[in-house]
Computed example of a mutant assay.
Amino acid sequence: MPQLPPPRRFRLLRARGVQTGLLIGVWWACDRAARALHAPVPGAVLGLGLLLLLLGTGRLPIRALQHSTRWLIGEMLLFFIPPMVSLLDYPQFLGWLGVKLIVAIAAGTLAVMVATAATIEIGHRALRPRR
């Protein structure tokens, strides 16, 4: 299926730098709002909620963030290199302490994956048309 060109009002948003700036701007604004309102929820979570609302209502088309999100996901490896370098500085992590940490990290990752999958499944069932 051919990809449709974006509407004229979103042509500037095709640039990855502009898209990344938009994501950072939403995060920054929501972080400031959360601090000013003394919200019990971090600004990053509010920003994700705002983006979800904008994307869900169609106010912000998915294409407006597509290049930036693909680039950020592609560069996620950079976020995991520093922990590997620090492993070389602390060899005790290669013993029982390391095993305990790996089990804790794996259990936490599994818990997040299960919670995310359950949330998506519940949302999918709620949005499914009734017969």
Rank of each mutant, 00 (worst) to 15 (best):
L50C: 10
L50D: 10
T20E: 01
V99Q: 12
A29P: 02
C30L: 06
L22E: 07
R125I: 02
A106H: 03
Q66K: 14
R59L: 07
G17Q: 11
V18C: 09
A126M: 08
G21H: 07
R8Q: 14
H124N: 10
P91E: 01
G21V: 11
I105K: 01
L94Q: 11
L46M: 04
H124W: 11
W71V: 13
A118T: 06
L54F: 08
V26R: 02
G58N: 06
P61Q: 10
I102P: 00
V26K: 01
R125C: 03
A29R: 00
G95E: 03
G56V: 06
G49S: 05
L60H: 06
L53W: 08
H38F: 12
R59D: 07
L55T: 13
L110P: 04
D31Q: 10
D89M: 05
F93L: 03
P42N: 03
M84H: 05
R125S: 06
W27S: 01
G74Y: 09
A34V: 02
I105R: 04
P83F: 02
L55Y: 11
G21P: 14
R63E: 15
F80G: 04
I102D: 00
L94A: 04
V18N: 01
V18R: 06
T20D: 01
E121A: 15
S86A: 07
R59M: 07
V99I: 09
R59T: 11
A29G: 06
G74K: 13
L65D: 05
V45Y: 02
L4S: 14
L94K: 05
R32F: 13
L101D: 01
W28D: 08
W71L: 15
L88N: 01
L54H: 08
A44L: 06
A33C: 03
R16E: 13
L94W: 03
I81C: 08
V45N: 00
G25I: 00
V41P: 00
A117G: 09
P5I: 12
R16W: 09
L88R: 00
Q19E: 10
A115Q: 10
P83R: 01
I62K: 14
P6S: 15
A15L: 15
G21L: 05
P40I: 09
R9W: 12
W27H: 03
C30A: 08
V114L: 15
T69W: 13
Q92G: 03
L48I: 09
R35V: 06
L48M: 08
I120P: 01
A117W: 14
A106C: 10
L110A: 13
I24G: 07
L88G: 02
V18Y: 10
L37K: 02
R59W: 07
Q19W: 05
R70M: 14
G123F: 09
C30P: 05
R11F: 15
A115W: 15
V103R: 13
A111C: 08
P5V: 14
P7E: 15
P5D: 14
P7G: 14
L65K: 07
P83D: 03
